[in-house]
Design a protein around this nucleic acid. Sequence first.
DNA 1: GTCTATAAAAGGATAGAC
DNA 2: GTCTATCCTTTTATAGAC
Lengths: 213, 213
Amino acid sequence: MAADTAAATALESEEEPVSKRDAIIAGATEIFLGAGYGAASMDAIAQAAGVSKQTVYAHFGAKDTLFEAIIRQKCDDLLAPAVTVGTEDGDVGQVLHDIAERFVNAILSPENMKLFRAIVGESSRFPELADAFYRAGPRLAADVLADYLFDVDAKGELAVPNPKSSAELFFAMLRNDLYMRRVLGIERVPCPNEADTLVGVAVSAFIAAHRKT
Amino acid sequence: MAADTAAATALESEEEPVSKRDAIIAGATEIFLGAGYGAASMDAIAQAAGVSKQTVYAHFGAKDTLFEAIIRQKCDDLLAPAVTVGTEDGDVGQVLHDIAERFVNAILSPENMKLFRAIVGESSRFPELADAFYRAGPRLAADVLADYLFDVDAKGELAVPNPKSSAELFFAMLRNDLYMRRVLGIERVPCPNEADTLVGVAVSAFIAAHRKT
DNA sequence: GTCTATAAAAGGATAGAC
DNA sequence: GTCTATCCTTTTATAGAC
């Protein structure tokens, strides 16, 4: 299978998916994230992939298996860039601002919105997926930031007696009203100005709340 | 119909729903909020209501109509207590603490969790419901708090140059990691200790960020 | 591995009697 | 208004040929 994929990669044009399997993944991702698990039909997925339905079943066995594969991959792909701290040296305010900007951009992206809605909507049927999302996203982000805040406290730049709690508070501040509107699908158009303002407000408030006495 | 309901109320025991219509509403609420729109079948709803399927259709016409009726009612019922300011006199810290406690209790309640998941999962199919939820919940709460914060600023108790922005930040702080875990269905057991801690952290940080210079 | 064709079941909605 | 019985579309999944 690996050899097949490699050969196809070399021969096919870049527009077309390299293999049937990749085509299925692409099609299933589009349909599942666009419509949700319940409203997505295997026919629609096969058609979006340009493949017969039986081919889909040959590769993934069943609908729920396919859904799990798609969602798990998306969790890893999408949330990874949001949780890196980047350059930890420099002014604390600047570092926090950078982290906040990347986090907000990541969680507000249309792809992440669709992923989150799909997971939340099926959290009772696929609890493991909800857990995977939480660990790859919010939990990891908070853990990474908590490590950084621990150092910040040690250096005496800010007073952070409880890094874990403060890290969670920081990201909560970033999941603001704009995030809520986007989760609910109310705000369609990307609004960079509001996102920038939001980041500034959150970072300022966070620093003010953790200033050394 | 009203007379029928009144008569039934007087005669029936308190355990049983007063009318067929109320029984349908109760059953549909249970099924829709428990399983989501897609996974809920009209058969299951009829069975949960103790009524034939045709009776359900006679009252509500179609599945989507029934869903809308259920969700809209739940939005009004559930979110109303969360958005009252209550006694606006007294220490600012105490008032904010009260508001925060009520808000957290409301949004973390199992009923609200189920409602939110159902709406988010079907936000593309029922955008009006997502909008109704937003206006009855997050938007209304922020508006009410913004009014209070405007007065607080005028009295000079805190520095709140932008009440709307600050109100949104306040509630964002309350939708913390615990809220995220509950939305994703990870945290099953109610954890009052963590909720109390969370409220304290948020209120302290908010006041510190808005202290007069 | 991939396709066409088909089975088998579930679910939304309706007909007609009472 | 309410029930039983039924229709018909959609959808998951499989059989069998190439």
